[in-house]
Design a protein around this nucleic acid. Structure first.
Length: 535
DNA sequence: CAGTGAGCGAGCTTCCGCTTGACTT
């Protein structure tokens, strides 16, 4: 008997099917050891750390020890990323006395061929990855556990917290709120002419200037009322609109929030359910990759449903520098458009299905239309130029599968020199809008762009900010409290690097060097600790 | 003697990232 260990019980079930009788497949359900919760657990000078069993994991590790002892070989098939390598490391340390024949097996897709290959090519642990995880973990602990008490003292409030992820996230919310508070309402006025073409179609054109004063707009409007209008130029431009990328965790959460009104936490719960039922791939991912065999099945679906001319290609995308790419994109496991499930889970599945299909379809083709009109009148020294913009769908491509609204309507067909009949001159009052508050979805997307947080934690970040009394949700919008503003001001003044939006990216860069064996992990931790704490 | 206040000490609070099910509200 051989023992194969993974993180997710769902993966364990699938892999058991692929590997068959000779294997026992077990799941760790994440990390088994971690720094202790109730104490710092790290010597701030030597960086020696104390790792303890996580809640409930002692029993599990004992079980694994028992199984390891009875096994010919042990395969550590945890995720092929920094955290997964660390989990494998702690497992090896626990199990090696029971069975020294321990190998590291890695795969990026849960397919039979990938799993079998991982067994054949299993090898050594990558200690550089493990060291990078130590650095990440310990730096986060030092920052969080040294700075939070500073806030307790400064604010006489023992529930506050600070951290590498939550503090810049909070700063985003506070800065946006202040932009909104400081926003001065400004109105402006547009002069528009409603015209009729010789064939009787309506056309709206506007004078391209924002008047701050309605009386100025009125002067122009009066002149237009007695003007003659003709088409000066017609510019048509063909434009290709690329299909969207398939979903990763951050974009799924953002899109489900915007389109289905599901906050990230709810989306993750539903996605986890769909994953456990075998309907979708792993829901916590930062990779856009799609297994080529699976892509083929979706392509067949596109051919059958929309026709050959709608078939696009499997595109590859460069992931962000911070991405670990341990899994595929979030996609259906089969090219079936629905699933025997009701309610929001089925809606979410539909969104994932359509997005996956769309990502493999042909570009849409849109015609951008720009018509310039000339208004001539005795009261005008020079002719006035009016503008009309429109868009026309030439070929919908992927937009058939994943609805997308063109913001502009098509213009009537026009030729240079055509005379137009004036129907009405309007003055439209418009307002310059203040920036919009973040929703949970847009915050997640922003954090992901900055490389802050990971797929497994995006949904948790807002929850933490709420628990600390930093954020309240009003409708779908996130509103920082007065306390949050004070805390951000305090941190900005005393610990500017902590709330620097580029800080995590800087850390990641150095962690990459640790992963490549070019830098000592303790050096990295000490350097950042010094820089953050301001020593 | 009961009530009050100062002083002291113990215990609690806190990070990010990986994964579910067992537990309580």
């Amino acid at each position: 008997m051989k023992l194969f260990i993974v993180e997710s019980p769902t993966k364990a079930r699938t892999i058991k099917k692929y590997l068959g009788k000779g294997f026992v497949v077990k799941a760790t359900m994440g990390h088994v050891k971690d720094l202790p919760e109730k104490e710092l657990g790290v010597d701030p000078e030597t960086l020696e750390a104390k790792y303890v069993y996580r809640k409930g994991k002692k029993k599990l590790v004992d079980e694994l020890k028992r199984l390891a002892q009875r096994s010919e070989e042990v395969y550590l098939g945890t995720d092929p990323d920094r955290e997964g390598e660390a989990i494998a490391y702690f497992l090896r340390e626990e199990l090696k006395r029971k069975n020294p024949k321990i190998k590291r097996a890695t795969f990026r897709e849960v397919t039979e061929s990938a799993i079998k290959k991982s067994v054949r090519s299993a090898g050594e642990l990558d200690m550089n990855l493990v060291k990078a995880q130590f650095a990440r973990r310990i730096l986060d602990r030092l920052i969080g556990y040294l700075l939070s008490p500073v806030l307790w003292d400064a604010f006489k409030n023992p529930k506050l917290s600070a951290g590498r992820v939550q503090s810049p996230a909070l700063r985003l919310l506070v800065e946006r709120e202040r932009q909104i508070e400081g926003f001065k309402k400004r109105k402006y006025y547009l002069v528009k002419a409603v015209l009729r073409t010789p064939s009787g179609e309506k056309l709206e054109a506007y004078y391209d200037y924002r008047y701050e004063n309605p009386s100025d707009a009125k002067v122009v409007a009066e002149k237009l009322k007695e003007a003659f209008f003709s088409v000066k130029s017609v510019k048509l431009k063909k434009e290709k609109v690329a299909p969207p990328k398939p979903f990763i965790t951050s974009t799924l959460q953002a899109e489900a929030d915007a389109k289905l009104g599901l906050p990230p936490e709810k989306t993750q719960k539903l996605a986890q359910f769909l994953y456990e039922q075998g309907f979708i791939t792993y829901p916590r991912t930062d990779s856009y990759r799609i297994n080529p065999e699976a892509a083929k099945a979706f392509t067949e679906f596109i051919k059958k449903t929309y026709g050959e001319e709608f078939v696009g290609r499997l595109r590859r995308f460069k992931a962000r520098a911070t991405a670990q790419e341990a899994h595929e994109a979030v996609r259906p496991t089969a090219a079936k458009p629905s699933v025997p499930v009701e309610g929001p889970a089925s809606k979410l599945y539909g969104l994932i299905f359509n997005r996956t299909v769309a990502s493999l379809m042909k570009e849409a083709e849109v015609e951008r239309q720009e018509v310039k009109l000339e208004a001539v009148s005795p009261s005008l020294k020079r002719p006035l130029e009016l503008l009309a913009k429109g868009a026309r769908m030439l070929f919908p491509g992927w937009m058939l599968a994943y609805p997308y609204e063109l913001k502009q309507k098509p213009l009537p067909e026009l030729e240079e020199g055509t005379l137009l009949e004036l129907e009405e001159v309007k003055i439209e009052e418009r307002e310059v809008k203040p920036p919009e508050r973040y929703t949970e979805g847009t915050l997640v997307k922003t954090l992901e762009k900055l490389g802050i947080g990971r797929p497994s934690t995006y949904a948790q970040i807002v929850k933490t900010l709420k628990e600390r009394g930093y954020v309240e949700k009003k409708g779908k919008y996130l509103v920082p409290t007065e306390l949050a503003k004070k805390v951000v001001d305090y941190l900005s003044e005393h610990y500017p690097l902590l709330v620097d939006y580029g800080f995590t990216a800087e850390v990641e860069k150095k962690l990459d060097e640790v992963e490549e064996g070019r830098r000592d992990w303790k050096e990295v931790v000490r350097e950042f600790k010094r820089k953050v704490m301001g020593e």
